[in-house]
Simulated scan of single mutants.
Amino acid sequence: MPVYVDREAPKLWRKICSETTIEISLLAENWKIILGGIIFQYIHGLAAHAVHYLHQPGPLLQDSGYALIPELGEDKAYISETLFSFLFFSFVLWTFHPFIFQSKSFHTVLLWCRVLACLVVCQMLRIVTFYSTQLPGPNYHCREGSKLARLPRPESVVEVLLINFPRGMIYGCGDLIFSSHMIFTLLFVLTYHKYGTIRFIKQSAWLLAIIESLLIIASRKHYTVDVVVAWYTVNLVVFFINKKLPELPDRSNASASLQFLPVSSRDKDGRNKDELHRSNNGTSGHI
């Protein structure tokens, strides 16, 4: 066993270095998209925090999901968050698996460019909807009588910009239609369904997405309409963006990755001169 590890370790290290070189090259070309997507996560968080100042607690709205799905209770609300965290971190780890495993179905940087593009569009639509109409939050800390249901008037702009992270994100109210948790969940499941390779995991991911939807309603974190709108909105956004964006390059051919490696001008000039020399001599360069 130690002999096997000693033999395979250099191969793994070379693969990690090779993948890192390729991904850094791609990141240098697409860093604006990655940075823009990351910055928009703060903008989305800021918008969700700011709408809390407009929230007015009130009686729960009539909801078909609440009538059909038993309430978990405040002490079991962590169940939906636990499942969401599992889905979130599992997807993030999977996007970096080409650095270690032999599977080369996609480039990590290009995949995240696609994911962030879909995520930003969904979040922009979400911001427009929850600012259009503020509904009384169904979550326990958003109900009448809770100290967190209303935020006191901010004393400065800095107080709003800091968004009281992470407490302000966890105990937000007013950002209902549509569910942010379902945006991430469905986007991750759709991405794995398209670029993943294990059928059982694809089926399990869809099942967990359905369970997560039911748990969000059972935890009274969102109304049923928030979850339903997320299901068709995210699917439509991903569908149209996939139509607009070019497909990710196929990495099933090992040589496909070489086109992303940086080539110096000296190499290019040398190669062009060799090709011109062979053309003038009427030879193909083969011995």
Rank of each mutant, 00 (worst) to 15 (best):
C142R: 01
L87E: 10
Q56E: 15
V237R: 09
S204M: 14
P246T: 03
S279L: 12
H97T: 15
C142D: 06
L215Y: 01
K202S: 07
S64I: 09
K243M: 15
V120E: 03
S204H: 04
H52M: 08
F84R: 06
S213G: 14
V157I: 12
M169L: 13
S105I: 02
L162W: 09
Q102N: 13
G285T: 04
F260E: 13
L27A: 11
A47C: 15
L119Q: 08
I183K: 02
L119H: 05
L176H: 08
C173Q: 12
L261G: 03
V5H: 07
L110Q: 14
L186C: 00
F101A: 15
L119E: 02
E212V: 04
H141T: 06
V263Q: 05
I287E: 09
G196C: 05
L110V: 10
P98T: 05
P98F: 15
R251G: 15
P152E: 12
T20V: 04
I198H: 09
I43A: 15
I241R: 03
R278C: 14
F178P: 05
T233C: 14
L125R: 01
N139T: 08
F188A: 12
I69M: 06
H55T: 05
K273I: 12
S279I: 04
T197F: 09
L162S: 05
A254W: 09
P98Y: 06
G168W: 02
F86K: 02
K243C: 14
R199F: 04
V229L: 13
S156V: 01
K268E: 13
H44M: 07
V228C: 08
I22E: 15
H52P: 02
I210E: 05
N30S: 07
L176I: 08
E247W: 00
K268L: 15
Y195T: 07
P138N: 05
P98A: 03
V120R: 07
H52C: 09
A256R: 01
S264E: 11
F178N: 06
P136H: 09
A47R: 07
F184V: 08
R167L: 13
G168R: 03
Q123N: 14
I38H: 05
Y223W: 08
